[in-house]
């Protein structure tokens, strides 16, 4: 990807930052983790930054157009540590996320790579874009 495209992505994300997914709903932006939702062909792609989480410590449940993500980040070996700085957070979370379309729950792919969780969900047949031939 060209730098130009990356800058355009960043600008786009900034613009979307203050917009609600479902206008008119009270949507909490203060839930952990922060998430970004993308679209690609017939799929919805949800991304979240989850550094320090192991894949075993995350749980994903999807039902129609609602996704439930929960997890725990454990702090290991904390004995005799003399801390100078503690900015990283540890603990548990549960977050429900409403999707703008129904998805095919049989066709969901979740990966955790370098601390980024990516959930790729294929739209349900009824939500796919279809060209209609004019008779």
């Amino acid at each position: 990807m060209l730098l130009e495209n990356f800058l355009s992505l960043q600008k786009h994300l900034d613009e979307l930052f203050n917009r609600e997914l479902f206008p008119g709903t009270t949507f909490s932006r203060r839930s952990f983790p922060s998430m970004n939702l993308f679209e690609k062909d017939d799929a919805l792609i949800l991304k979240a930054e989850l550094p320090g989480f192991e894949k075993e410590d995350l749980k994903i449940e999807i039902k129609e157009n609602s996704l439930l993500l929960s997890g725990i980040k454990k702090e290991r070996e904390t004995d005799d540590r003399n801390y100078h700085r503690r900015e990283r957070l540890f603990g548990t979370f549960t977050r429900q996320f409403g999707l703008p379309y129904r998805v095919n729950t049989e066709k969901v792919l979740a990966t955790l790579l370098d601390g980024i969780l990516t959930i790729e969900m294929e739209k349900a047949e009824s939500a796919k874009v279809r060209s209609i031939a004019i008779k």
Partner: peptide, 18 residues
């Protein structure tokens, strides 16, 4: 890696990437 975002159209955003 910006290429991870190739061909993705952002719909909704809570954080930026850099």
């Amino acid at each position: 890696r910006p290429q991870d975002y190739d061909k993705l159209r952002p719909l909704y955003s809570e954080y930026n990437v850099g």
